[in-house]
């Protein structure tokens, strides 16, 4: 099933997603500054908004250098993979009734699959750089994203059980009376944490830990290839925020305002929350990250799934 205007939807989603992620560079810098009692970029244009343009000009005109010791084809393809996988995931996000590129009936699985594929980008980038810091970053990314994906999927199964469908539009419609954040609060918290880890944001940014690994998997990248990782990261947090809005906060549902506005407000609130996390929390140690994932989050997700299943069966 596709939307009535597939091409228009594709172009619209592409434009909105990409410009939002560019705009996020400015938002993040301004918000971090706000929480650190600074101003941030406020000189270029009104409120520093044209900083985005300045940053883009800078990153497009930078020297695009491939180190001689890198595995060239893999090195080039790695940043493209993350962009492609994240942008593909945006295809199934229902922004408003009728505004969705592809209304897949297994939409949720598609997102999870794409986020698994996105790991390849990081791992290949780390491997192809031919640099031990990058390789360590790639290894960390592989371990982190695989272990956090497990309970990311499990934490969503509660939502699927309640809604009875993998289709994201169906999940939004199932929240007509009650947003899933209330019956699935634990699942919401688990998905939020897993989402931060999947998007490799602080406090889970171990693959690119500046303090230990220079810049992790993208140490050797420059110019627009680095820019693609950058945009990929921002697209990633936008995707996770949209997923939270769709799965737990009723997507476009909301009084008075038009559906698109409600959706964007919810997404933006979570984007700000991601940035707040970056402003406030220190990076975890790697063993802490692993034990948090496997010893706390994973059992909690399983328990959440079991209890939800039991309740759903008992209610029938």
């Amino acid at each position: 099933m596709t939307s009535p205007h597939p091409i228009a939807s594709i172009i619209g989603v592409l434009i909105v997603a990409l410009s939002l992620s560019a705009f996020l560079i400015w938002v993040e810098r301004r918000l971090l500054a706000l929480w650190q009692d600074r101003y941030g970029p406020n000189r270029v244009g009104p409120f520093g908004l044209l900083q985005v343009v300045a940053d883009m000009i800078k990153i497009f005109t930078k020297e695009d250098w491939i180190p001689p010791f890198a595995d060239k084809p893999v090195f080039v393809i790695a940043p493209a993979i993350i962009m492609v996988t994240v942008l593909m995931s945006f295809a199934i996000i229902p922004v408003a009734p009728g505004i969705v590129v592809s209304d897949l009936n297994i939409g949720l699985l598609f997102v999870l699959g794409m986020s698994s594929l996105g790991v390849y980008s990081i791992v290949l980038a780390g491997w192809a750089s031919g640099n031990k810091y990058s390789l360590l970053g790639g290894l960390r990314a592989a371990a982190q994203m695989i272990s956090y994906e497990v309970f990311m999927g499990l934490s969503l199964m509660g939502v699927v059980l309640l809604a009875g469908t993998f289709n994201l539009t169906g999940i939004v419609k199932a929240q007509q009376n009650l947003w899933f954040v209330i019956p699935q609060f634990l699942g919401f918290v688990l998905f939020l944490i897993a989402g931060v880890a999947e998007a490799r944001r602080l406090p889970f940014d171990l693959p690119e830990a500046e303090a230990e690994l220079v810049a992790g998997f993208h140490s050797e990248y420059s110019g627009m290839k680095f820019g693609m990782f950058f945009v990929g990261e921002y697209l990633g947090i936008t995707l996770i925020s949209s997923m939270i809005a769709v799965l737990f906060l009723g997507g476009w549902m909301g009084p008075w305002l038009p559906p698109v506005v409600w959706f964007l407000v919810k997404v933006f609130a979570f984007l700000c929350f991601f940035i707040l996390l970056r402003a406030s929390l220190p990076r975890l140690r790697f063993d802490q990250l692993m034990s948090l994932g496997w010893k706390v989050m994973f059992p909690l997700a399983l328990a959440n799934l079991l209890v939800t299943g039991a309740v759903v069966v008992a209610m029938k």
Binding site: L34, W35, D37, R38, Y39, L276, A279, S280, L281
Partner: peptide, 21 residues
């Protein structure tokens, strides 16, 4: 303590900025 940290950082929204422009 993690939640308290996040909240305390959030409260900085309402603090005066120290930057001299």
């Amino acid at each position: 303590s993690v939640i308290r940290t996040i909240w305390n950082v959030f409260l900085h929204t309402f603090h005066r900025r120290v930057t001299i422009q």
